[in-house]
Structures are given as structure tokens and as C-alpha cells.
Amino acid sequence: MPISPNQGSTGGGTTVTITGTNLAGASAVRFGSKPATITANTPTSVTVTSPSGSGTVPVTVTTAAGASNPLNFYYIGAPFKASLSAASGPSAGGNTVTISGTGLATASSVAFGGNNATPTVTSDSLLSVTVPAGASGSVGVSVTTTGGANNGFSYTYVDPPTITSLAPTSGSTSGGTTVTITGTDLSTTESVTFDGVTAPFGVINSTTVSAVTPPGGAGAVDVVVSTTGGSATAAAGYTYVAGAGI
């Protein structure tokens, strides 16, 4: 007499189908000592909604002829999330984050706000998921398993940055010039480069970053600002000027 599924949430509410023979007119289905709600019954199957419980319990079906042989049903608790590898990412999604915790082995979906993604389960304590696209702002992260769902983390979608101006737009090839970069969505800036060379920088606010130019060759170069949300390029936005020589 098979039972499907043979595991469910400790909170109950799992739809369980028991198949076998001579099951017509089932008067009771018990999970351990607790009765389940019968929702459908035929001579070869009984469908019920599991009651709450814990651990492993025997499931029996009672008909006019008596009780059946028992089948095991395993109660699984809701997952616990211990850490999220990244708390923010691009609004376009596509980046992979990992979630660690316990009770993750049966994870079937991870929701970022109202956007769902299917995880790759590594073990009971670790899964990875590709973040779906979402609107700019913070959303809750929820993992759904056979045992239920668990919230507790937030994730921030970040729009890609833009660069609207640089001041000044030129300076010495020896570097050391402080350049103010103005744009949008700059608060999560991770790097600033001049012609591919990393520059020291500081975030002033969401629209302003201050960077100090590294040494460079004479001529116009690209300036790239990379953030959690992506990157923006000011093509030929800064010009290195060689000093006078005699």
C-alpha cells in the first residue's frame, strides 16, 4: 500500500494519497494518533490532508473490515536560513547567490519578493539560485521546502549606474587628480577605473563618487564605474595631459 508523498510539513496541510485495495468506504485515516481529513476515496485510493505532527509516524486506513497495515510518514520542519551570500544585485537578475542553513534538502523554490526561481540543492545545508529580475528596491527572500517556507532575509535590487559628468575632465599623466563623478545609482560602487587601471575612490552619495586618478599615458581614456547593479562607461571621458618639458 504505497503512500505519496511520504513526507510533509510539521504544520500539516500536505495532500497525501494512499493507494491499495479494498479501500472503499474508508472511515478514518490516522497519522500516528491524529486523524487526517479525507478528501477523496475510491476502492483503490484514499486522499487526505495530513494533520500537524513531528518525527516519523505510522499511517493507517480504517474501513469496515478493520485497519490496514501501517506506512511511515516523515514530518519535516520548516527550513532555517543562516546566511545569504549577497544582499544585493542587479535589477536585471542573472547573478547566482548561495543560501546556507538547515532543512534545505527539499527546497523547491526561492522567492525574491514576488519573483520565484528554482534552486540547485547541494546539500541539506546549502543551495544556490540564479536571482530573477526584479524592480529596484528591497524584497524579502523566502525558501519553500516540503517542510514549509521561511523568511528572514532581504535582498536589494540595484539599477545599473549612469555617468552624467566628470570634473575635472583632464589632469596630469602622473595621476593624483581628484575627479568628481556625477551620475545615478552610484551608492554601491565597487570600483572605478581609468583606462582599465583601478583608482582609489570614495562614495559620497547615490549620485556622486570621488576618485583619484592613477598615472596614465597622454590622451583621452574611458572611465568605468562598476556597482552592484552593473557598470557605466564615460567613453573618452577623461584626458591625461603630459607636462611641459624642455
Rank of each mutant, 00 (worst) to 15 (best):
G66M: 14
A235D: 05
P168N: 08
S88E: 14
V139L: 09
Y240H: 06
G176W: 00
T63N: 12
L71R: 15
P132M: 03
S206A: 15
V224D: 11
N205D: 11
T14D: 08
G147D: 08
T189M: 00
G94H: 02
P160A: 09
Y74D: 15
I76M: 15
L126D: 12
T156V: 12
A28C: 12
S172M: 01
T14K: 13
S88Y: 13
T98F: 01
V141R: 11
N115V: 13
D159V: 07
V192M: 04
S191L: 07
V158W: 01
I99A: 09
I181F: 02
I38A: 08
G140K: 09
V221T: 10
V197M: 06
S191G: 04
N115I: 09
G12C: 07
V97F: 10
G134N: 04
G176T: 03
A87T: 10
L104P: 07
G237Q: 12
P2R: 10
N115E: 08
A78C: 06
S138I: 04
S154F: 08
A78N: 11
T228K: 07
T60C: 07
S154Y: 12
N41F: 11
I181D: 00
S50P: 09
N69T: 15
P161W: 06
S191V: 03
A234K: 05
T62Y: 13
G53Y: 08
F201V: 01
G12R: 05
L71C: 06
V203H: 07
L23N: 06
T21P: 10
F112Y: 05
A211Q: 04
S83E: 13
T37D: 03
G20T: 09
P132C: 11
N22V: 14
S136W: 05
G12I: 05
G93F: 15
T173L: 00
S142F: 15
S136I: 01
V29D: 05
G183T: 00
A232K: 06
G229C: 06
G103K: 06
T228L: 08
G183W: 00
G202K: 07
V131L: 00
G53Q: 08
V129S: 00
G103F: 02
A235P: 14
S9R: 09
V139G: 06
P215G: 13
S52A: 15
L127H: 00
I246N: 15
N116M: 11
N150I: 15
G94I: 05
L186T: 01
V221D: 03
A149R: 10
S100L: 09
A67I: 08
S100M: 05
T144N: 02
V97L: 14
P132L: 05
T130A: 02
V59Y: 10
G114Y: 07
S206C: 14
T62C: 10
G134T: 02
V61F: 12
T19M: 12
F73G: 04
D222G: 01
S91F: 10
G103L: 06
F201N: 04
V223Q: 11
P132I: 07
I181R: 00
A244F: 15
T37S: 14
I38Q: 10
P79T: 03
A236S: 13
A235K: 14
I181L: 01
Y74V: 15
A135S: 03
S88M: 12
N150C: 13
T14A: 15
G176Y: 00
A26T: 07
A149P: 10
L104R: 04
V59H: 09
F201Y: 03
